[in-house]
Amino acid sequence: MSEVAHDSASQDPPGEDLSWRREYWKKNVRVLVVLLAVWASVSLGAGVLFIEQLNNIEILGFPLGLWFAQQGAIYTFVILILVYALWMDRIDDSFGVSERKGNGERS
């Protein structure tokens, strides 16, 4: 996220130069598109649309499609939300909008 220039914008008092907002929002939406694409492909993709094809592969007794529908999709969901929270932390930091307590620690 280093390509964002802070020098000029950070001199302005908050609320005057709002051009960073469009940039921030664009990045936010890009994160959502990437993560939701994964979300849809493990659940509706592997667990529903292609379940029959994947079921021909067997791992530890599980037909793969069934495994995605009952286990794999859920593991992926948990990881996706964690990745989202961490990724947004980085974006918040690079734009200087992360929420901090008085001592500068994340709240």
Binding site: Q11, G96, V97, S98, E99
Partner: peptide
């Protein structure tokens, strides 16, 4: 859409 107002000093 934004967590909080931008604080210049946090940079």
């Amino acid at each position: 859409r934004y967590p909080q107002a931008r604080i210049p000093s946090s940079q």
